[in-house]
Design a protein around this nucleic acid. Sequence first.
DNA 1: GGTCGATAGTATATATATAAACCATGTCCG
DNA 2: CGGACATGGTTTATATATATACTATCGACC
Lengths: 157, 157
Amino acid sequence: MALEHELGLRKPIELLPHEALLNIYYTASCLKKRADEFLRGFGLTDVQFNVMMLLWYQSGPEGGLSQAQLSDMMLVNRANVTSLIDRMEKAALVARTASPGDRRYNIVKMTSRGKKLFAKVEPLYARQVQEIMAVFKAGEQKRLVAMLGRIRGELAR
Amino acid sequence: MALEHELGLRKPIELLPHEALLNIYYTASCLKKRADEFLRGFGLTDVQFNVMMLLWYQSGPEGGLSQAQLSDMMLVNRANVTSLIDRMEKAALVARTASPGDRRYNIVKMTSRGKKLFAKVEPLYARQVQEIMAVFKAGEQKRLVAMLGRIRGELAR
DNA sequence: GGTCGATAGTATATATATAAACCATGTCCG
DNA sequence: CGGACATGGTTTATATATATACTATCGACC
């Protein structure tokens, strides 16, 4: 459906480039809401789940990631990661451990509770993602990925 | 560029549907950051500018929009609009006015300062949007809009 | 070997978002 | 009429985000 109707606008969006931009923006917002709603049932937020996904799939040789690495991989300010990890540590999902060589770093690792929860939730999450994205054939998904990559490339210039 | 490299991931994103989802999510995030950066120069946030755009282009016969209408058009909780309009009112960008017929409503209207600022900023903003989206021809932009609409349609089911 | 600059994490102030509970007002229907 | 229900706005608690300034640590270089 057209964004114009979904938002209940009285008048159409005038410029096509702006309509395209708003489509990206609001589609991301809808996807986030859906993910949050699904994950709330497990006591997680989408951001916290993303941290767990990064720790699960992207951990380095020390068995975790530093807060700075997490902030890079999430495109957020590193100040943000402090409170995020505080909350996740309080929920016993992750733990800060000292880095052996360099005392500036915290290595964030998943706890066994975190791992157990992630192992349970992740397949259900992946299934949802696949169901939603099944509106596209693989070729279309690749085309979408390529288009969005071009926009980010333009933004980075 | 591929998301994998932009985020500095050690391993590729395994599932294409998930890669597509993350592309939407991070592209929106990059667009938001860019808009915020541009608008900060005028003392605005992207959300506040969006409110002004809605008030400018979508105002009803009373010359404004209610907070509930704004929340619908922005896909946010109406609780959120209270503090947003508080801040914008403090900055003298908008004003709450009483609705003639129904005392439950606030009609939010732009102040003359708000209108003057918007009239100055909007053309510059529109130009930026057009420059960024100029990586696509009009036909591609339409295809992108259609694809994203299909995803939201799937989410709404 | 001590100072300088870079890097990691934290603290603070502020903006945006949600959910949930609440009050005031409108509407509808028996 | 009057109670039930719906709607608009606010409040509160909580989560996420930014910018900025601060501390601790590390490395490099004279």
